[in-house]
Design a protein around this nucleic acid. Structure first.
Lengths: 262, 262
DNA sequence: TCATTTTCCGAACACGGGTTCAGTTTCTTC
DNA sequence: GAAGAAACTGAACCCGTGTTCGGAAAATGA
């Protein structure tokens, strides 16, 4: 038997079948993780979709975190394909629009993934670092596009990191409500998200905007959005384990110690 | 002893202290749920923050889901305060901006909550229905503002439900990366989110926008965002349990049954 | 057909974490 | 300061769920 992840030399047919089945498992897990989250998803539920007992999964993955890791990697590969293409587009506007539309497409693919929505907590520190680094690369890429647009004047001024987080939040939020087979057309969804994120909801420029056509002031007392420095928290560090706390028995903070019974 | 949730008649001082402690627990749970999620949060970790054993929590809440429910209710109360004020504002633009800024403020409050980000799965069906209904009310309120703006022409045409989901996704995504004490100014954060969601990133109107000032076409092949019907999935139904599946032993779909050993 | 490999199952185990309970310490009140 | 209520503890319990393991069924390839 060829163990999980170990690439023994077998006949091509067998290996292809093995990989196919492995992909099926991944697909089932992907959907479950996306809809219910990692912790709320049981191996039984994944196996059930495949008409199999949960112990069968151990022929393809060493443990549950390994399945999560594979999901992460697969979705990250999708993202990298997107950014690779986006880099070759002309204007920042086109690049941003492409990223948004494709990200939505990935999110709404029947077997698609919700790339940045998965947790990294269950992974080992090394695996976490790997995934977080990939996430950061993607977030960085998106931020750079926005920043370039801001410098070029095609995007309004603001904190590019915040702007990128806003976009990613809206995109990843799709996993919370989108269900394949619904009445929503995935393509139209992408178009609306792109136009709304890039051009906004308002049909007339903001009162304080530095757009070409400046208009009469309205009743909005907002000042132009200031920019921040670069030392803010990053989405990739989400769920990173905190520094270890002292053991339970020694952590009775904020309360006078009592003698106890032992 | 006065049991959890039971309002026995005790002296006011005692009851006040009881409620104060209960609020402390809630605050600790709120932060933990927001950062790590419900399932990944252990009662030990909540109790630890308070310098107490987990069994002490049972003097204030009957069980873990009850704590989650209280978190939900508290955050929903915040949201309803927001919409109540927003209803009295003049233009749709002002109402939307107010909702966004206040929602951000709630999300970034040191002891604040991430209202719609909590799971409802662990709750009993009745509790779920309660929370989901409240969520839907809020989402509906936001959607109505957007829809009114679209009809009035101050917002560009599109599916108001999608638009509301986008906004909510961006707002709730804040819980994923914002950490109190960071370098980000919460107020500025709200301003940027509002202006970016309402006016968009682009400093010049969209090529296909129906804005007052129409401009030369660019290299963007997008068609105007179409609207959809009203039967799409709702964010409130997230994590609602699926219809029960047949028992494990009878669900061997997609594979020829084998005789088994018993 | 038959040996070998692959795939899967059932049972048992391990363990984390929610929950219960009796008892002890601390606070409140008169 | 004493009685009673409140707040909290430690130990035990229980159950879901991930994991291990030996063996059976199925598929493969000659």
């Amino acid at each position: 038997m060829i163990g999980p992840n170990e690439a023994h030399v077998t006949t091509p047919h067998v290996q292809a079948k093995y990989l196919r089945r492995r992909a099926e498992i991944l697909r089932a897990a992907l959907g479950a993780f996306r809809e219910r989250g990692y912790h709320a998803t049981t191996l039984d539920s994944i196996a059930e979709q495949l008409g199999v007992r949960k112990t069968a999964l151990y022929h393809y993955f060493p443990d549950k975190p390994a399945i999560l890791l594979a999901c992460h990697r697969e979705s990250i590969a999708d993202l990298e394909r997107i950014t690779a293409v986006a880099r070759q587009l002309g204007t920042e506007r086109d690049r941003l629009r492409y990223i948004i539309v494709e990200h939505v497409r990935v999110m709404t693919d029947a077997f698609g993934t919700s790339p940045l929505a998965f947790e990294v907590g269950p992974l080992t520190p090394e695996r976490q670092a790997e995934i977080v680094a990939s996430r950061d690369r993607y977030e960085r890429e998106l931020r750079d596009v926005i920043q370039a647009g801001m410098r070029a004047g095609t995007f309004r001024a603001g904190d590019p990191k915040l702007a990128a987080f806003l976009v990613l939040g809206a995109l990843n939020g799709i996993a919370r409500w989108y269900r394949p087979g619904g009445s929503l057309n995935a393509g139209a969804l992408g178009e609306q998200f792109a136009s709304q994120l890039i051009d906004g909801l308002a049909s007339v420029p903001a009162p304080t905007a530095v757009a070409a056509a400046d208009r009469a002031q309205e009743t909005c007392g907002s000042k132009p959005t200031p920019t921040h420095d670069d030392a803010s928290p990053q989405p990739g560090t989400v769920n990173t384990p905190r520094s270890p706390r002292p053991a339970l028995a020694h952590a009775r903070a904020g309360r006078t110690p009592r003698k106890g019974t032992r």
